[in-house]
């Protein structure tokens, strides 16, 4: 993984790192991918990917309202808010 790829990956994951940390991060990732790459030695032909071990049928609920307004609780918990909203630094589109 080169510098540009790592920078892109860090951005996709929204994790900041200084460029001087890049070699160390690359080393750690490479190490793990060496472990993962053992997968390439397996014969997986014809195997259907398995997403969930139980292979259940999904449940659904009735379309009934069951919610109490917890606005104040939610806003109190947030790092920054006014009386009605969560606040963040200005988003420039």
């Amino acid at each position: 993984m080169d510098k540009i790829e790592l920078k892109n990956l860090l951005f996709l994951a929204r994790i900041h790192a200084e460029e001087r940390e890049y070699p160390e991060i690359t080393k750690k990732l490479t190490n793990t991918f060496n472990l993962i790459d053992e997968m390439n030695n397996l014969d997986l032909q014809g195997l259907e990917p398995l997403n969930n071990p139980l292979e259940l049928n999904n449940v659904s609920r009735e379309d009934e309202e069951k919610n109490r307004n917890q606005k104040d609780k939610f806003l109190d918990q947030s790092p920054e808010s006014d009386d009605d909203h969560f606040m963040v630094p200005k988003i420039i589109e």
Partner: peptide
């Protein structure tokens, strides 16, 4: 619908901000 796709909070337009919010 009465409620949201994955939560039982009310699906309605034009209500008080952040008042129709479930966990």
């Amino acid at each position: 619908t009465n409620t949201k796709l994955f939560s039982p909070a009310k699906n309605k337009f034009g209500e008080d901000a952040n008042s129709l919010v479930d966990l």
